[in-house]
Design a protein around this nucleic acid. Structure first.
Lengths: 235, 235
DNA sequence: GTCATCATGTAAGCCGTTACATGATTGC
DNA sequence: GCAATCATGTAACGGCTTACATGATGAC
């Protein structure tokens, strides 16, 4: 989960840990309170598995040899957006690798058996543009059928006469918001079926991206995949 | 959390582990997939801490001495509701104690600093009838202010032009459902303020309940505090 | 010079999950 | 007798949180 979110953010641009956390908090509503205690170890894992590299290390991609000037090398990887970097030491800017893109695509497309909650779905939807249209549709429909089941359960509960006012109100509210979630999904699915074939919204994730062009970090970014809390899950 | 849910269910009637899990799944939408691997250890902890006792053991409440016939003693604690008990061995029927009621009241009233998510709130609301009116109001208002903050964050995100269609849709949906949650809460708060003072809905939890009357298990129960998933949290 | 913020990390521990192991009861 | 369901538990492990430790930079 965290890995997926991190890789998704890094698909767009290079970032350092602190900044990743800020985006997680401010832009993705779910995962709002990931702490450094889980973020940094996650980054370390990703680095060990070869999914990301810390800036300055040009990975094993040949063609861009190190100059020998570490400082110069690192300077080239400072994030360009935002106010000029203020602190320039201690920051470890991470970049996603080909292997990382592969992992990202795999995580994104993974169809988790039972453990798909709203956070997981929301996260995947936020990065849905990296998903091939068919997988996107499956994601939406899988979610829809889960919500449908939940709706039926909610209806059963709400039908219980014996609930006190609080439990009843809770049950009815649950029923109603599930209904609204479903109709939202239905709109998304319809849009996907009709206009979806245009391919406009598919940025193939494991794209051939042979030379890690530094200018990409500065210019690419259709902005962060942001999207606040669908989840009632967190604060 | 789990402890709170278990104690809440046991406030109403005696139950054995398997049945507790069934209710958790079917009636409380959150906590839908607690597994035995967490449920049984939780029950064991509660038993060790004196919050619950297994049927047959009359706790340290004097006045109802053991007859010596264990089988007879246990028979008196089979749950009376539902179809006649089919399997009659291996079941450990738990009953809440005075100490358990104390713990329940404490857990229910606890004001968790930051870690209050929808599950936690939903659970507390489901058992809100055990909360004194003032605490109930605080619970609702605390939740409202959290949602208010979330709404503002969601608005900021939704205002971002650069979102792709999926992230945008997600952000807008999040904004709208948060708005609806807030207006639902506002209705609850209003109801609480006006009609709330009647005391009708307060069953003081740590009530004096000196002799554990077996008939209570059969007759009391204003039904389980049930209420399905407010949480988008789980399946 | 000191405070707030930025920035990275480690250690302990909680809470829960999956998977495994066991056995009784009922229906066929 | 066998399978399904009911019923209880243990063991290993995973992920995330809290709390702690450290230090650079910039503002005042």
């Amino acid at each position: 989960m965290l890995e997926l979110a991190i890789l998704g953010l890094l698909e767009e641009q290079e970032l350092h840990g602190y900044e990743i956390r800020r985006r997680l908090r401010e832009e993705l509503g779910f995962l709002a309170n990931v702490s450094f205690g889980s973020l940094y170890p996650a980054l370390a894992r990703l680095e060990r598995s070869g999914a990301v590299v810390a800036a300055g290390e040009v990975a094993s991609t040949p063609g861009i040899p190190m100059t020998g000037s570490l400082a110069g090398e690192r300077a080239a990887f400072w994030p360009r957006r935002g106010p000029a970097p203020r602190s320039r030491r201690g920051r470890k800017v991470y970049r996603i690798t080909e292997e990382g893109r592969r992992q990202f695509a795999a995580l994104l497309a993974a169809e988790p058996g039972a453990g798909e909650d709203a956070r997981s779905f929301g996260l995947r939807l936020a990065f849905a543009r990296y998903l091939p249209p068919a997988a996107r549709l499956r994601l939406l429909e899988r979610r829809r059928s889960q919500l449908q089941e939940r709706l039926e359960a909610a209806r059963r509960v709400a039908a219980d006469h014996q609930l006190d006012r609080y439990a009843r109100s809770l049950a009815e509210h649950a029923k109603e918001s599930t209904e609204q979630d479903i109709s939202w999904l239905d709109r998304l699915i319809a849009a996907e079926r009709s206009g979806g074939g245009d391919g406009v919204h598919w940025t193939p994730s494991p794209a051939p991206m042979p030379s890690p062009d530094p200018s990409r970090a500065a210019s690419a970014a259709p902005s962060s995949a942001a999207a606040a809390a669908v989840t009632k899950g967190l604060p």
